[in-house]
């Protein structure tokens, strides 16, 4: 099955799977589904870990009081879009 992910979405999916040691196949992650709980099944500690990896890899931080924070983690597509927009490295 050909992946429907954009290159940035695929890069983000690989980072998630790799850093959180998930069994999911990056290419098969549905870009529209939530990352938290239902969907990819991540919990709040996973998302904290992910935010640390993002900060290290892409040079920007996602804080809990970010007005956009709920949307950022709402799906792979939203997260990849945020990384593209905010990355400093």
């Amino acid at each position: 099955m050909a992946s429907q992910l954009t290159p940035m979405e695929l890069e983000t999916a690989r980072m998630i799977v790799e850093s959180l040691n998930l069994e999911a196949v990056p290419e098969h992650i549905d870009p529209e589904k939530p990352l938290y709980r239902d969907g990819l099944g991540l919990d709040s500690i996973d998302l904290l870990e992910l935010s640390l990896v993002i900060s290290k890899t892409y040079g920007f931080q996602i804080k809990s009081d970010d007005p956009d924070v709920t949307r950022i983690f709402s799906s792979l597509r939203a997260l990849a879009g945020t990384i593209e927009k905010r990355r400093t490295k």
Partner: peptide, 12 residues
Amino acid sequence: YVGSANALLGLD
């Protein structure tokens, strides 16, 4: 309160 996606962000 742990129970939302962003609850723990920034604790580091």
